[in-house]
Design a protein around this nucleic acid. Sequence first.
DNA 1: ATACAGCATTCTGAATTCAGAATTCAACCG
DNA 2: CGGTTGAATTCTGAATTCAGAATGCTGTAT
Lengths: 259, 259
Amino acid sequence: MPIRSLSPQPTLVEQVYEALLSEITEGKFGAEQRLIQEELAEGLGVSRQPVQQALLLLRSHGVLRDAPGRGLMVAPLDPEHVRDLYEIRRAVDGLASANAAERSPDLARSEGPAFIARGRAAVRSKSIARMIAADMDFHFFLYGLSGNPLIAEVSEPHWTYLRRAMGEVLVHGNAPSGIWDEHEAILAAVIEGQPQAAERLAREHVSHASASLIAEMAPAEPVQRRAVSRGRRTAHSDSPGVDATASGRRFSQGRRTKP
Amino acid sequence: MPIRSLSPQPTLVEQVYEALLSEITEGKFGAEQRLIQEELAEGLGVSRQPVQQALLLLRSHGVLRDAPGRGLMVAPLDPEHVRDLYEIRRAVDGLASANAAERSPDLARSEGPAFIARGRAAVRSKSIARMIAADMDFHFFLYGLSGNPLIAEVSEPHWTYLRRAMGEVLVHGNAPSGIWDEHEAILAAVIEGQPQAAERLAREHVSHASASLIAEMAPAEPVQRRAVSRGRRTAHSDSPGVDATASGRRFSQGRRTKP
DNA sequence: ATACAGCATTCTGAATTCAGAATTCAACCG
DNA sequence: CGGTTGAATTCTGAATTCAGAATGCTGTAT
């Protein structure tokens, strides 16, 4: 009898993905250092193949960017980018909180306070990793309460990026003060089943977080380079009008042939 | 002098990605047919390598799912999933439209009408591909006007999924009627610099689109299987407390060695 | 006749190899 | 002495090859 859906050993690609993401988050790989597939493969003890695929995924998730010359580099922490991220989070977190208040106030009541407690404990512990983890956990708890699994899915890559930014800021001192009060207020509105209040509080919370984070990181990272359109042309824009949907056109017909 | 950011020939992976996505969108590959890498490679005239990477991306974008046995299959079109998608789009498109009205009314005035015209032409042409493309183009135009490049980035994978759903519905007859009137209304609000009106209209538009799309597809695809948590465990949830950040652990130490 | 064991087939993940493009560096020409 | 051209180097994208796992088929024993 075959065991359905059980993956005891994550594929190498996934392991490489996680390993690289962790190292990036922890600030290895200096600001714009290029990532050499062969070096990474060497360092991780695998071949270039899974590394290449993991890099492809990391790029598609916005963690890496095409380097000007060749290859990939860590996407620089750009305050402007963080601002854009928070703008979206303001909308999405607002939606999540409103939905949570509408759909799962009971779950919020029974399981929410634990998150708050853990968050305050994390702040007391002064462990940066723990503070970030607690913050993420609380917000993903709300995403879960929303009843819309896509909210967590959409937000996940944003958090992998914000994680980096938060880490950067927190090591520069300046721990957050009121964020767990705000979290508690949001939770209270959810528990009381007040979607509008929950949404408003969530949006305000994101605004505060955004402002303080950007204020902290602005001086640290100059980023004088104007925002280059971040790679990856979109599927639709390649073909301005109608797309010649692959009705039969095969490519690579003239591959590698000298004239 | 090196030419910066010019990619005259998209990489094979991207071509394969697009080709497969088109075929999937057009409904080739029956409901739960497995995708054999070798067959696809053969059919496209490339090796398995780019196919494998394209499949990996398609999976990470939710178009494909792990098949029970081995390999991948097309993710079934799930009305519930579409509902969730539109819920997010309601928030994000609202944000985009409000921002557009605030930040780029002039661009909207100069370039917007062309999109409307093209959209109406597409409807007249009765070409499904063209209608979908025009719809996407209009919305991505709005995303562009918003001044927040992340909005397009976030929405892109959703659209690759919705494209399939729309195709499915459109081939079943039932062309949309009023959507270009609604688009025009949104555009007008943007041009006149009225963020609140633009946001409201955009949200209503998404609600209408959602309702009609779901109504059409509901009977077609039963999907009796309850919503399985769609793969890809998240980085944070793997480690409940503090994450054991890959501080030195290397893997594959015992790879392929018989006992 | 049915159930189980073992073997052949099929397909994927990963390693290795190959070819092309970009960068770099050095020699040559102005 | 500065600029340009050409070759060497480096690194990537893609093809090919290899090994392991799952599936399914066949033969045999009960």
